[in-house]
Amino acid sequence: MSENGAITRLLQRASAGEIDAERELLPLVYAELRRVAARQLAGERSGHTLSPTALVHEAYLRLANDATAAPADRRQFFALAARRMRQVLIDHARARDAAKRGGAQREAVTLSALQSEDTAGEVDLLALDQALQQLEQADPRKARIVELRYFAGLEMIDIAELLGISRATAQRDWEVARTFLFQQLA
């Protein structure tokens, strides 16, 4: 059985309440979770207090403790994990702001995955979260595509399949969402 099939089988067993399945799942997904975490932390300021390992562990704990999260397959699992990582980073940024007088210091994250190859810049992580929330209110599918592409690092073909839309529609939504975010963050 392929690794993807094994992950899906373990996810199904875990959602059925088998505790052994969760223990068997972590070694299979850990390296990919660390890659997603490293990607999310790559644009953060230097000296960030969260390491990829810490981010993976915190996100995995949140995912494991969420009874409503029952991913059916590997893609859904990594999409949910990326969302939990984003939540951990947002919570971390909020806590850091609360610790500062007036909360003026914010963590910056690059939008290199959202930008064209010839542009560069940084954006406030809390501002990005707020812009994503606005996008989600206007168009939940576009916000989901940003999460899956930017935070989870999924390819358009995987996003399209996960959302049950064509690759062309996913690509169009990605372009519109990217433009919306740039406007909100400008």
Rank of each mutant, 00 (worst) to 15 (best):
Q171K: 09
D158Y: 15
N4T: 07
L61V: 14
P71L: 00
T53P: 00
I90M: 11
A70Y: 03
G153P: 00
T68M: 08
A93M: 05
F77L: 03
G5R: 06
V146S: 05
K100Y: 12
I145S: 02
R35H: 10
E161I: 04
A186F: 02
I19Q: 13
Q130L: 13
R62T: 08
A42L: 13
M85K: 00
A79C: 11
R106I: 01
L125M: 06
D97S: 15
R106L: 07
L50H: 05
G121T: 05
E44D: 07
A70K: 15
I7K: 08
S15E: 13
V36H: 00
A99S: 12
R75G: 05
Q184Y: 01
A70E: 05
F180V: 02
A79D: 09
I159M: 02
Q105W: 08
A160L: 02
T119D: 09
I7W: 00
A170G: 03
A31L: 07
Q134C: 10
V36A: 06
A113E: 04
L11Q: 04
I165P: 04
I145D: 04
T169R: 02
E161M: 07
I157H: 07
Q183R: 07
P52I: 09
L132V: 05
S46P: 08
E155A: 15
L132C: 11
A160Q: 10
R141N: 11
D97C: 14
R9P: 11
K100I: 13
R144P: 01
F180M: 02
D139N: 15
Q184C: 04
A104K: 12
A143G: 04
R62N: 08
G47M: 06
V176G: 06
R96F: 11
A82S: 00
Q87K: 10
G102K: 02
A160K: 02
W174R: 15
E147W: 15
G103H: 02
V109C: 06
A72Y: 01
G121H: 11
L185I: 04
Y150F: 14
L11M: 15
I165Q: 03
L41P: 14
R144D: 05
R35C: 10
R172L: 04
Q171A: 14
S46H: 09
G47S: 02
R101P: 12
